[in-house]
Design a protein around this nucleic acid. Sequence first.
DNA 1: TAGATTGTTAATCGATTAACAATC
DNA 2: TAGATTGTTAATCGATTAACAATC
Lengths: 222, 222
Amino acid sequence: MAESKSKSNPNPADAPKAVVGRLSLYLRELQHLVRDGHETISSTRLGKILGFSDAQVRKDLAYFGQFGYPGIGYRCHELIHAIKQIFGTDRQWPVAIIGTGNLGRALVGYKGFDNQGFKIVAAFDIDPAKVGGAIEEAPIHHLDDLERIVQEKQIKLAIIAVPASAAQSVADRLGASGIDGILNFAPVTVTAPPNASMVGVDLAIEMEQLTFDVVKRSGEKK
Amino acid sequence: MAESKSKSNPNPADAPKAVVGRLSLYLRELQHLVRDGHETISSTRLGKILGFSDAQVRKDLAYFGQFGYPGIGYRCHELIHAIKQIFGTDRQWPVAIIGTGNLGRALVGYKGFDNQGFKIVAAFDIDPAKVGGAIEEAPIHHLDDLERIVQEKQIKLAIIAVPASAAQSVADRLGASGIDGILNFAPVTVTAPPNASMVGVDLAIEMEQLTFDVVKRSGEKK
DNA sequence: TAGATTGTTAATCGATTAACAATC
DNA sequence: TAGATTGTTAATCGATTAACAATC
């Protein structure tokens, strides 16, 4: 019954996936702009850099609030702060990683996570030779200790970097441990546990998207 | 003037990006289905597994041809073959990787690439201590030898795994060397060289997409 | 034949773009 | 004030869904 919002005030939760994806690109670009000494940026310029229209930039941001100044544009620092709040990355999230093969180890050491608000605080494996060790600062625990460590360290996010065959069962265990979000690198369709969100990244699929474009071009140019 | 195609025959090159993305998911799922012994699959079942409608599956595939059998569904093997042809991954693509840090090394060893038609045949770095070595089977060359090796090994695809600050200049050099497609892991906006396609993967951005969902949910549930 | 399922058309839905009054 | 630029509405464009004749 507390229905008082102005009619034309899109709700952030209604933002389409595509908009949220671009929001990340805006944030990344704004951070580069600040490093280059820019105080403000217009929707036209920001769009040009990223290959979007000025209208799209403004519309996208309008889902989340009114951040701009007519005649001026957007103040970079201010907008960065606002977007980080939207993503929840104005604070640091402790993250668990499951699987310490090539990819898992590389992800633990990936500096881009730290910079953007993610800190990998624990790794898990089932190989007794690895358990007890550590990668960078993160201790490697046995997967059987997942629930305990997740509780102790208040971990809400996890990264799956195990073979495809193990991915679903790991996802289920993560759900049972109370994890809220899972980033899945295993190249397989995994059903998200109830109450958890999931994002999948398949590296071979990204390559396929590329070859499709390359093959398409070579067909046209012939 | 050889304009004889039936009017309702969508051109593969017209397929929206979203459709091509799902095509990769269909391929991946079909491969799993074959491994599980399935001969055929209906659009309804395939859609259900991936969370799409039956109509969407059929419409997506229709961009590329008529692959189904009314009353039967799609023959898995046949459809896999057709999709691989569309992506050009019915043959093996030699791939170069630039940057042999944590991520670069992990990508060279990533088995998912081999399985899907990509073989990393050369790595590049500018660190004299690394040049001359090798990762798995791939020799590490100096970046200055890029053009020569690309020609010799007929490399068409490259992966950028260098720091953000170096990404654009590496992309430019790749373009100058005649590379057709670039998969960029550096967390920065990179402009594709003329005549080359580019796909970007930003791992921190994928995590952000996840936290957005997690934050959204926690807001709703309160 | 009856049942299953496709490919395609038309209807619906959603996202992007264009335009402009309001604002600094 | 004149110039720049926003937020928002309406118009356009594109993608998804529903429905169904055709087919096995």
